[in-house]
């Protein structure tokens, strides 16, 4: 069992390493992707500068907390897209029979397929996140919590994408659903929790768990309570297990390249 885990981790390491090398082939594109992503994230500061010139707090957050929010969001999304890029193309992988090669290998199909390429611009997201935590307060405790939150959040984001992408095992062309869910996760997560009310707040802790991936970490870092950390870890475990469960359930319905849309 332990040996199997070790071997699996080594396979992930090699896969990511080779994917990274592939991206490095074009150094100019590599660098510009990263830089553009950093500028992209930085641009949005303008929006918040203007909003905070109107009001001192937005949704219960101070300006500094908004920066932390942006830091957490970019860092978590960065990790998820860098290491598990293919989790966000999983619908396509399933529909076009691209799981075949992983299914004949003695490793986890799910893990092998989602780690088979990396997103370079996500490095920009991660770097931006790190800059934000430094701006917010550069202490060992903050940095450690930030790392932990980033990893847990990323695992949840990836799990959500896997769960919704797995729908295509049953229903075929469902890109639109998984893409919508993934973009909802991003769109909401860069606004303070406090501006939303009612049912949407409930969604943030259930089917669109950005409450756990973003708002909870902001609370953990700016107002630490152990119970928050516990929620985060339990949430991560639940979503990861759910993702594996749904994916492997769907895999029984996998039809390789035999799924065709016949026109009559």
């Amino acid at each position: 069992m332990l040996m199997e885990v070790k071997n699996q981790i080594y396979a992930i390491y090699l896969s990511i390493k080779y994917a990274f090398q592939r991206e490095l082939l074009n150094k100019f594109t590599f660098l510009s992707n990263i830089i553009f992503m950093i500028i992209n994230n930085a641009c949005f500061i303008i929006q918040w500068v203007i909003l905070y010139s109107i009001k001192d707090e937005v949704g219960g957050y101070s300006f500094k907390q908004v920066l932390l929010l942006w830091g957490v969001a970019s860092f978590t999304f960065g990790i998820s897209r860098f290491f598990f890029k293919e989790a966000f193309n999983l619908t396509d992988t399933i529909n076009n029979g691209k799981l075949d090669n992983y299914l004949v290998q003695p490793k986890s199909v799910l893990i092998s397929s989602i780690t088979s390429s990396i997103e370079v611009s996500a490095i920009g997201d991660m770097l931006y996140g790190i800059v934000m935590i430094i701006v917010f307060g550069f202490t060992l405790k903050n940095v450690l919590l930030f790392l932990l939150c980033g990893i847990c959040g990323a695992l949840i984001i990836v799990s959500i994408s896997i769960i919704f992408s797995s729908l295509s095992f049953w229903f075929g062309k469902t890109e639109i659903i998984s893409e919508t869910v993934n973009s909802l996760m991003i769109n909401f997560s860069v606004y303070p929790e406090g501006i939303f009310t009612g049912i949407i707040r409930v969604m943030f802790y259930t089917i669109l768990p950005l409450g756990i991936t973003t708002y909870l970490p902001v609370r953990i870092i700016s107002d630490f309570k152990f119970i928050y950390l516990l929620y985060l870890i339990i949430g991560t475990i639940i979503f990861v297990l759910l993702a594996f469960f749904v994916f492997y359930r769907g895999l029984r319905k996998y039809s390789s390249t035999n799924l065709m849309n016949a026109r009559v």
Binding site: G172, N258, L259, N261, A262, R263, V264
Partner: peptide
């Protein structure tokens, strides 16, 4: 067996 969706024109 495979289930194939039929699309009309």
């Amino acid at each position: 067996n495979f289930k194939v969706k039929i699309k009309e024109k």
